[in-house]
Structure formats: structure tokens, C-alpha cells
């Protein structure tokens, strides 16, 4: 019974499993207003495949059992059956139309980046990400942006012959080996966030499974995508397009927090940026003449 429950959870665990889990069998349902679309489509398409598989493979196994020469089966001569052929051409078309309808709905809603409340610019580098906060609630954000790269513990552990145990790289009991960064992307929940995504050197792909999509980060191209996270949490992903030797070592971490907390965080970041700018100005400005 426990095994059944575990399997069921592994197959349809859904939202509780935003991040990869040991022995996970199915897609995550994700945590955004849109991420249920691929999950739903995946489950419907899988179900359709299972049913067709049972029919087709069932027919094969029955014929392998019934029509064996060793059981005295005598081969028949027919090679054609118009009704049957029309049936197995027509029925798949109907199934495909249903799937196409569902998939089109998902595509149309994904393509709609209008009405966003904030903009994040994501830039892929070999082998780290840069996040720039462009605007929030209609106001431009000044100088909040940072690089985000693999955390130190994972980086030391992943060296060839390090002798360190990847199993020991954990945060709050969750193994974060190769799935943790120094500076996560902080986002507010219940906010439609528009991403503009590009690449600085080669093509990367920005993918957090809990958000339900990936989008290539291509030099010279600006792609857009959006998300609206429903639940606070830490959501982990990885670069999904081969980008050179450390392609496997440039994870993505999104930290989703309540709006108030986010606004506070953003204000602190902006203040720090101002302070930094002020101190830089003080250092580089020529000394006032009066005191010279």
C-alpha cells in the first residue's frame, strides 16, 4: 500500500514537488498561474499513449500467442480491409484534433506577455547568469542587477577528484548540489513578471521547471516570456542549452517572496546601489579647490 502511495505521489505529486525529487517519475505541476498547462497536457497525452499502447501491444501479444505455427495456426491470405484502414486513419486524427486544441490554448496564453507588472532582464554568460531589474509597478528600477553563479560548496565538490560527497551539499535538508547559486533571483509572488532574455556569448537556455517553461538566451536576440508565481518558495533550475564546458554548472535559483517583503528587498538593493555610487563618486571626484 505504501509502495502504491509512493508511486502515485511520484507520478502526480504536483505542486508539493516544485524541485527535483529522488525517484520523481513525472513532470512537476509547477507553482505559477501557467505552469499547470504543460503538466496537464503531459498527463493527457501520456494517458492517450497508454490507451493506444494497450490496444496495439495487446493485439500484438494476442496474435503472437494465437497465431503461432507451433499451435497449428494456418496463415490466412487477406491483405486488405478498407473499413479497418479508414478507422485507424480517422480515429487518430480525431485524437490529434483534441490534443491540438488543448495545446493551442496553452500556447496562446503563454505568448501573452501583456499586463506585466515588472520586467527582469536575464543574460546568459559562460557560465553564469545576470539578472537586471528593469522596472517594477511602472517605475524604472535604478541600478539593481547582479551576477548569479554556482555556489561555492557545489563548485568545490564538483571538481574532478575532489573526493567530496555531493550528498552532503544540502540546504534545509534538501540536496542542492549543482542547484544552488550565490545570488538568487528574488521575485514577488502574485505579480505578472515579464522576462527579457538574451545571451552574451553563446546560446544558453533559462529553465526553472517549477515555472513551466524554458527560453533560449541567444546573443543578438531578445526573447520574452512571463510568469506569475502563486506560492512563496525557492525554485531551482539549470541551463538547458549546451553552452560549453561548464554547461552543467550554471544553475538558476528563483526565490519567490510576498510582495511586501520583495518591495523591502528592492528598496534595500536600490539604497545600496546609491550608496555604492556615492562612494565611487567621492573617490573619483577631484578634490574641491578651496581645500587644496
Amino acid at each position: 500500500m505504501k509502495a502504491v502511495a509512493t508511486t502515485a505521489l511520484a507520478l502526480f505529486g504536483g505542486a508539493v514537488w516544485a524541485n527535483p525529487q529522488p525517484d520523481q517519475l513525472n513532470l512537476t505541476k509547477g507553482v505559477t498561474t501557467w505552469s499547470g498547462e504543460p503538466y496537464f497536457l503531459n498527463n493527457v497525452a501520456f494517458g492517450v499513449c497508454v490507451v493506444i499502447g494497450i490496444v496495439v501491444f495487446g493485439a500484438m501479444f494476442i496474435s503472437m500467442f494465437k497465431f503461432r505455427k507451433s499451435r497449428g495456426a494456418v496463415a490466412e491470405k487477406w491483405t486488405h480491409n478498407t473499413k479497418l484502414e479508414a478507422l485507424w486513419t480517422g480515429v487518430p486524427i480525431i485524437i490529434l484534433i483534441v490534443l491540438a486544441k488543448l495545446a493551442t490554448t496553452g500556447l496562446v496564453s503563454f505568448a501573452d506577455t501583456t499586463g506585466s507588472e515588472m520586467t527582469i532582464k536575464v543574460t546568459g554568460y559562460q557560465w553564469k547568469w545576470r539578472y537586471d531589474y528593469v522596472d517594477y509597478q511602472g517605475k524604472a528600477v535604478e541600478k539593481v542587477g547582479f551576477m548569479s553563479k554556482l555556489d561555492g560548496r557545489s563548485d568545490r565538490t564538483r571538481q574532478l577528484g575532489s573526493g567530496m560527497d555531493p550528498g552532503k551539499v544540502t540546504v534545509d535538508g534538501y540536496n542542492t548540489y549543482l542547484l544552488d547559486v550565490d545570488h538568487p533571483l528574488v521575485l514577488p509572488i502574485n505579480t505578472k513578471v515579464r522576462f527579457v532574455i538574451t545571451g552574451a556569448d553563446v546560446i544558453h537556455s533559462w529553465w526553472v521547471p517549477a515555472l513551466g517553461w524554458k527560453m533560449d538566451a541567444i546573443p543578438g536576440v531578445i526573447n520574452s516570456a512571463w510568469t506569475n508565481i502563486k506560492e512563496p518558495g525557492v525554485y531551482r533550475g539549470q541551463c538547458a542549452e549546451l553552452c560549453g564546458q561548464d554547461h552543467g554548472f550554471m544553475p538558476i535559483v528563483v526565490k519567490a517572496v510576498p510582495k511586501a517583503e520583495f518591495e523591502q528587498w528592492l528598496a534595500t538593493q536600490q539604497d545600496e546601489a546609491k550608496l555604492l555610487k556615492a562612494s565611487q563618486t567621492a573617490q573619483t571626484a577631484p578634490a574641491p579647490k578651496g581645500q587644496g
Binding site: A59, S63, M64, V74
Partner: peptide, 8 residues
């Protein structure tokens, strides 16, 4: 395969 006289 259906209706044949199969060997494997």
C-alpha cells in the same frame, strides 16, 4: 501478424 502462422 494477425491471422498468420508465426515462428520466432
Amino acid at each position: 501478424m494477425w491471422g498468420g502462422s508465426m515462428t520466432f
